[in-house]
């Protein structure tokens, strides 16, 4: 059925989702609960698995609540001929989202910088001098975006690197905290990220007790920063244990 010349073609306009702040607090701070029913200082249930991609040198799949990511590591492989000689290896990180990752159409602008943030978090833990003249490629794919995407990506990438046998000082764990009003909430979901006053993400090496990346945005008071840091360190050590168990299970399964 052809449309008349000059007539506007009927199209479906996408639903505009505004980032207006939702009235999340009711009468007081006390009777407000999180969208998924967790406590303020409670993380989402985590599922970690290595060896998800058979063609990669190492890979890992992570599921934190509704956030699902898969990370593949390729290499070390020879750097392109055009690249200048380097005594240390190169790390190349790429983060991408599937079209169906989030309910809103297309990608948000903040996802573009995730690749460089992932690179910054990982470069402090990888022993680059162990693979000169070569490149390690880390490809991260977000299958479903359910909040705290970057912290899940970093933890999953660390697991994939360990699975690939890349020399590392320690595993890396990343935890994020949102500040809404006077409350601090660990491991925020998308709804909470949409109406936060400030976000805090810390990437650390649990065994060495060292921080490789710290990202703070929005309004924060010094006591809140201290509390958020303690929350992150505590959660990181627990997440580190889960990651260790995951690696040990996969290693013992291949040795049996």
């Amino acid at each position: 059925m052809a449309a008349k010349p000059g007539a506007a073609t009927p199209t479906y306009s996408p639903k505009i989702v505004g980032r207006s702040r939702l009235p999340i607090f009711k009468d007081s701070d006390l009777d407000w609960s999180r969208p998924d029913g967790r406590g303020f200082h409670q993380c989402r249930p985590a599922l970690l698995q290595t060896g998800a991609v058979s063609s990669a040198s190492g890979s890992a799949y992570a599921e934190f609540g509704n956030t699902k990511v898969i990370v593949s590591v390729f290499g070390p492989r020879e750097s392109k001929k055009a690249m200048v000689y380097s005594d240390v290896g190169r790390l190349n990180c790429n983060v991408s989202y599937t079209n169906f990752a989030s309910p809103t159409l297309g990608q948000g602008t903040d996802h573009k910088e995730y690749s460089s943030m992932l690179h910054k978090a990982l470069e402090g833990v990888i022993m680059m001098e162990t693979f000169p003249k070569t490149t390690v490629d880390v490809f991260a794919l977000v299958l479903e975006s359910g909040g705290s995407d970057l912290s899940v990506l970093i933890s999953c990438a660390s697991l994939a690197l360990a699975d690939a046998g890349i020399m590392m000082y320690d595993l890396i764990t990343a935890v994020s905290v949102s500040c809404i009003g006077k409350s601090l909430m660990i491991d925020p979901v998308t709804e909470e990220e949409g109406c936060e006053d400030g976000s805090f993400m810390m990437t650390c090496m649990p065994s060495r007790y060292e921080i490789t990346q710290l990202t703070i945005t929005g309004e924060w008071t010094t006591p809140n920063i201290n509390e958020a840091m303690q929350l992150c360190l505590d959660a990181s050590s627990k997440l580190g244990e889960i990651m260790r168990d995951c690696l040990k299970q996969s290693a013992s399964a291949s040795d049996e």
Partner: peptide
Amino acid sequence: QTVVPGDV
């Protein structure tokens, strides 16, 4: 035993 990066 199985060990992972960071273990002493």
